[in-house]
Amino acid sequence: MAAKEIRFHGRGGQGAVLAARMLASAAAAEGKHVASFPMYGFERRGMPVVAFTRFSDEPIREKTQIYTPDCLVVIDPTLLNIKTLFDGLKPDGILILNSPKEFPEPPHPSVKRAAIINATQVALCEIGRDIPNTCLIGSLARATGWVSLESVLKGLADHLDGDLLKKNIRNAERGYEEVQVISW
């Protein structure tokens, strides 16, 4: 498999940073080289946060932000209003979107394929709080096939434990099972 670059967009407190790391852990569990880091200004709940994950069969040397992602993960649907959100998404790239809406038209002309799930609702049900990050990693695994669900769950266990881990495993499993993949 060619190297993959994934860009996460969320808001402070929604777990974008951790989601990017969990995905890196999932790919590492499959023997991939991985690299993940976030970029944000002063730490404030609710402000836009970007996080990046790379994985590859080869060592990853670049320490740059991601400008031409293979996949965009949008954790907060209100971020769809940001004009630069879809910048650089590859023509065959895929959007993983948390949204309660139906999209008869693509949310942006450059989006041809999307995996959409009401991850906020799933998270409120499974975790009791609006932290939809792990649900969307499950959806990513299903929609892309780049990592298995089993590896995603292993990746979760690298970062969470106890009751919180159990709840997030269920969150990720539902993301995997319930996501709708749409092409326009």
Binding site: V17, A20, R21, A24, S25, A28, H33, V34, A35, S36, F37, P38, M39, I60, K63
Partner: peptide, 12 residues
């Protein structure tokens, strides 16, 4: 080591 680009960089 560089802030963000290394301090927050998760690798194996």
């Amino acid at each position: 080591y560089d802030g963000y680009y290394l301090s927050f960089l998760a690798e194996s």
